[in-house]
Nucleic acid binder design. Sequence first.
DNA 1: GCCGCGGCGGCAACGGGTTGCCATGTATTG
DNA 2: CAATACATGGCAACCCGTTGCCGCCGCGGC
Lengths: 360, 360
Amino acid sequence: MPDHTRPPGTRVTIYDVALEADVSPSTVSRAFSRPSRVNSETAERIRQVAERLGYRTNPLARALTTSRTQMIALVIADITNPVYAEIVRGAQEAATDCEYTTVLIDAQESDRLERAAVERTMSTVDGIVLASSRMSDSAIRMVAKQRPVVVLNRALADVPCVVTDNPRGVRRAAEHLGELGHDHITYVAGPQASWPNGVRWRSLLEAGMELEIKVRQIGPFSPTMAGGERAAQELRARPATAVLAFNDQMAIGIIRGLSRMGVNVPGDVSVVGFDNILAADIVTPGLTTVAAPLYAEGSAATRHLLTMIEGAPGHTGRPMTLPVRLVVRDSTAARNPSPGRARQSWVRQRSATDSAAHLR
Amino acid sequence: MPDHTRPPGTRVTIYDVALEADVSPSTVSRAFSRPSRVNSETAERIRQVAERLGYRTNPLARALTTSRTQMIALVIADITNPVYAEIVRGAQEAATDCEYTTVLIDAQESDRLERAAVERTMSTVDGIVLASSRMSDSAIRMVAKQRPVVVLNRALADVPCVVTDNPRGVRRAAEHLGELGHDHITYVAGPQASWPNGVRWRSLLEAGMELEIKVRQIGPFSPTMAGGERAAQELRARPATAVLAFNDQMAIGIIRGLSRMGVNVPGDVSVVGFDNILAADIVTPGLTTVAAPLYAEGSAATRHLLTMIEGAPGHTGRPMTLPVRLVVRDSTAARNPSPGRARQSWVRQRSATDSAAHLR
DNA sequence: GCCGCGGCGGCAACGGGTTGCCATGTATTG
DNA sequence: CAATACATGGCAACCCGTTGCCGCCGCGGC
C-alpha cells in the first residue's frame, strides 16, 4: 500500500486521492458530491483513502464551477449597536444549520462604506442579508439584481423584506403613555436614512390621531447615547412629559441628559425606547421599551435567503412582519399631576413655544 | 466599436474584455494584477473597455491560482458580549485598509462550535485572528500550522499573540482598593477556559503579596450578568468589602445582586470590573473598571496577521502587550469605617469562615 | 441469441484568472 | 553596424474540482 508523503505546503487534491485509490479524479469528485452516482464500495474505499491522506475538498475550486460558495453576507449598520448582536446570532445559527458560513460586514452607519463592502463581497457570496441598510433603494435593487437579497428592517418593493411590526409597537407605546395620562408625545428622531425611523414617526402620527394624543418630532439625532443626550438638551428648550425615542441607546442618553439637568424620569418625564437591548434593563430607571424579536429577525431573514438561494422565487409581495411587544419598566409613570418648580417652568415654556411645533 | 450585449446571468470575464480590446486574455489579466508589466496606454485602454463592459475580476478564480482570497477570519467567543464590538471594529478597519474582507465567526463560548467553524472556514481565508479562543492550546497550534494565526487575549508559545497588560491592570485595581483602605480583595472568577481569567487571579495573588492585601477567589461563574448575580449570592455567604470581577458584565451583575440583597455599593462593598464596556458607564453606580484598548487590540492583531500573510515571519517571542488603564467611577469607595447592622454581621461571618479561604 | 437497459467509471471540457517562458520589436551600447 | 538589453504581449500550462457524455459490462426480456 503506497503512501507518498506529500511535500509540505501542498494541499491534497482529488488527483492525489485518485492515484492512491486507483480510480479517476472524476470518480473521487463524485464520491463526495454525488455519492449515489458511484458504487458504494468504491465510494467507501475512496473515502478511506481520502481520510488517510487528509483530503479536504477545496471550496474555492468547487465554487468556481458550481458558483456556490456556501457563504452569505450579513450587512449590519453598526456593530457597536447591541441590537445587532442577537440578529447576528439568529442569522449565523440559521446559516450554520444549512452549512453556510456568514460573512459579517459592519457598515459603520455609512452609505459609502456599505456600498464598497457589498461591492467587494458580492461576488464571493451566494446571497446577502441587508440588516438596516443605509443604502438607497436603487442601490439595493441594483444589488438584488445580481444576487439573492433579503432586506431586514426596511420595506422595499420587488425585494424580499423582513420587518417588525413598528406600527403596532408605536401604537402600544402610545396607548401605554395615554393610559398614564399623557396627552402629548414627543418623538425623538434617529437617522433619516433609517427606514424604521420614518415608519415610527408616521405610526405615531396615526396613533396620536386615533388616541387623541398630540405628537411632535424633534431631531434627527445620532442613534447613540450621545445623540440622546443632545436630544435632552433640545428637550429643555421644548419640554415634554412623554418621549418616544427612536431606539434604546437614545432613550438612555435622554434619561441621563435629563437627570443631569435635574429633570426626573419618570417623575417629570416618561421615556420609551425601542429594541429592548440588554442595557435597557440595567439603567436606572429601567427603560420601558418596545421589544423586537431580534433573534427571530436574523433567523427568519436568513432562512428566507437560503430558500431563495436554493432556487425558490423569494416572495416580494408584502414584507414578512414579525410581532413586537411593549416591555414596561420604570421609565414611564403617570403624568405628574402637581408639578414642582421645574415642571412649572416647563409648562410655561411649552405653552409659549410649542403650539406651532405640534402637528395636528 | 462593437458592443455585444452579454446574455444575462453570465459574468463578464477577461476573455470578453480581451476580445473587445483586441489583446490576449493574459494581457487583460496583467493590466489588473501587474500593471507595470503592460504598456500604460494599453492598460488604460483595457481598463476603459473593462469599465464599459462592467468587468469585475472574480476573486474566487483568482484565489484558485494565487491561493490568496483576501479574506481573513475573526473568531470571537461571544458576539453578545459588547467587548468584542470594538475589537471587531478595529480588526475590520485594519483589514479593510489592506483590502481584506473579514469573516466573523461567533463561537458562542463553545469549544466545539469554534473548532467546527474554524475547520470550515480555514481553507477559504488567508489567515485567522482568534480572539479569546476557547480551544485547547494544541488545537490552536494545529490550526496555526496550516494558516497564519494571531491569538488575541491569550499567550501561547510558538504562536504570535497580542494581549493586554493584565498584571498591570490588576495591580492598579489592587492599589486603588488598597488606598481606599481595603485589606481584603475577593476575585470573582470567570470561565476557566478563559486565559485572562487565570492571569488575573495570579496577578492578584502577586499584587496582594506586595501590597499586603489578602486575596481569595470564588467561582468560576459564567461571564455574564446572570453569572455576576449568582456570585452575589455566594458573596452573601462569604462576605467581602472589595470585589474584583473577571469582567464588567459580572461586575454589573454583582452590583445588582448585592443591591437586591440590601447591600450598598460602594458603601458596603467596592466593586471593580474589567474591560470598560459601554454599560459600565451607564449603570448606577458607575463601574470602576480596568479599561482595555479594545479597538487597538483588534487592529494590532489584524495588522500583525496581515504582515504574516505578506510573508513576514510572525514573531512568536513574547506576546505583544497593550497597555491598560484604571477608570475610576462610583462603584469603589473608602472602606466603611463605621459598619451598620448589615456590615456588622458581615464582619462576624467573615471572621468565622474566612481565614481558611484566604491565601497567604 | 440479440437487444435494450441500467449501473458504473473514465474522458475531456469547462470555470476564470495567473504566470513562466518565449517571440517580437525597439532602444542602448561598444 | 553588430550585439545586447529591455519593454511588451502572446502561448499554453496550471490551479482543483464539476459534469455532460460516452463506453463498457452484466443482466433480463423476447
